[in-house]
Design a protein around this nucleic acid. Sequence first.
DNA 1: GCCAACGTTGGC
DNA 2: GCCAACGTTGGC
Length: 137
Amino acid sequence: MQYWLFKSEPYKWSWEDQKAEGAAGGEWDGIRNYQARNFMRRMKVGDHGFFYHSNEGLEIVGIVEVIAESHPDSTTDDPRWDCVDVKAVRDMPRPVTLKEIKATPELSEMSLVKSMRLSVQPVTAQEWAIVCRMGGL
DNA sequence: GCCAACGTTGGC
DNA sequence: GCCAACGTTGGC
């Protein structure tokens, strides 16, 4: 099982929107960045990811699960772009803010801190555990 | 709304 | 294949 982090600007696609899709979930589409796409290609069904609100919020608000592996992104005809499907699993009991993450030495190597523009990124098992604890899980 | 960081594009 | 110009992201 691998862990990931998915970023979204809440006014485009929010955690509420994600939850509204329910168990059926939906495509994590619109990614037009090779690095982010390559991470999605490595995802397996059952992998978990954090759902992060960028621009507004700046916090991890929930947990999603990968429910379909990489396939063509239906929002483009360009064959370069693939995406996975994800569904909402649960809210973070207490959202974990970027500020808190930056203030935590054990999380200083997170992509969220080091590669701030990467919209889909890997999270280590250790980072996952720390953030979950901070979020009240 | 600004602007720094950084990824992408395209001319050479 | 380099690199300048350009566009986008995302924190502040």
